[in-house]
């Protein structure tokens, strides 16, 4: 039984079968149709132990050794029910993904909730090829978890089917399922910082003050306060009045800064990365900025929503079917 969600020919057939059995839905309540159950290697060894005990009981004609063998055999059967029950009626829901950058671990929010009156223990949740996250739900009805997947590419990223498994209570059996929660995350280009923007700070003392301690333009005069740079002290005035004042300088930026396709060098991906870096820089310095790339122009603006719009365009630049829905099958 493979642990990973498979990718070969046979697995494709399996994937198709799974598609019909557990169709895509952003919320799934597990039932006997979606839960698979099979002994673990440990469970098979346990079966071997039972056979050994029965052989011993036969050869020694010992009733109580029979009883031990029967006890273990029944334990195995009863455990099937318990293991199944631990996943049964568990509700799995995709609660959203904030998005991330290529090369990062992309975050997905999953909510696991239990039916009333049945606490769940030892449920493990994971995307293919990732670390399994342990979920226990005792007091609360539900539990929100964050799962991270690496190796995403730019654009819409579909991590595949989500593995829900449990070995509870004895580790002899594994109940599992692969659910398709239609989970999807937007992956932005990997930002490259320190690119050389063609347009930099303007020489005019207009626009938005971005660096109050910059040294480009004289701004004002004010009283000296301990800690001010000594070289900014207006010595003439000090000689005249006996009271130290300092000259204040500042930097001003062009309020209509456009992140421009032609301002950066490299191939498409590299350009996108640099543009992303610029956009993030601009956002970090709380500057208005716009986007100008082939086919798309966004007028300057600021704020989280604006940044998201810009990043989204950068992420989906040249990606076919840029709209996430409807999605045909698994993205590969």
């Amino acid at each position: 039984m493979s642990e990973q969600f498979p990718g070969g020919f046979v697995q494709k057939r399996f994937g198709g079968w799974l598609e019909k059995r557990i169709p895509r839905a952003s919320q799934i309540t597990l039932n006997q149709q979606s839960i698979f159950i099979f002994p673990t290697p440990r469970g098979l060894v346990f079966g071997g132990l039972i056979v050994l005990l029965i052989l011993g009981a036969i050869n020694y004609q010992n009733s109580l050794v029979y009883a031990v063998a029967f006890l273990l055999g029944s334990l195995f059967l009863v455990t099937i029910l318990h293991t199944f029950r631990n996943l049964s009626r568990v509700c799995i829901e995709f609660t959203g993904a904030p998005g991330g950058y290529v090369g990062e671990e992309i975050e997905f929010g999953i909510r696991v909730s239990r039916p009333a009156g049945a606490s769940k223990e030892g449920i493990r949740v994971a995307w293919p090829n990732t670390v399994k996250q342990w979920v226990d739900i005792h007091e609360k009805e539900a539990c929100g978890i964050k799962l991270f997947v690496g190796g995403a590419h730019r654009g819409w990223f579909d991590p595949g089917r989500l593995l829900i498994e449990t070995y509870y209570p004895l580790g002899l059996l594994r109940a599992w399922t692969w659910v398709d929660l239609a989970a999807i995350a937007l992956v932005y280009p990997k930002p490259i910082f320190g690119g050389s923007p063609v347009e930099s700070a303007t020489q005019k003392d207009e626009g938005e003050l971005v660096d109050p301690l910059g040294s480009d333009d004289f701004r004002d005069i004010r009283d000296y306060q301990p800690g001010d740079p000594v070289k900014h002290i207006l010595w003439k005035s000090y000689a005249r009045t006996g009271k130290p004042v300092i000259k204040q300088y500042g930097s001003y930026l062009d309020p209509r800064f456009m992140i421009n396709w032609d301002a950066v060098a490299g191939d498409t991906e590299e350009r996108l990365s640099r543009l992303t870096g610029l956009a993030l820089d601009a956002d970090r310095s709380q500057r208005d900025f716009g986007l100008d790339i082939p086919g798309i122009r966004i007028e300057p603006g600021a704020g989280a929503g604006h940044l998201k719009r810009v990043l989204r365009e950068l992420a989906l630049f040249g990606v076919e079917g840029a709209s996430p829905a409807p999605k045909q099958g698994r993205a590969s």
């Binding site: 006890l71 029944s74 334990l75 059967l77 009863v78 455990t79 318990h82 209570p169």
Partner: peptide, 9 residues
Amino acid sequence: LIFQTLPLV
């Protein structure tokens, strides 16, 4: 668990 096995045992 053990209690539940008893009928089957």
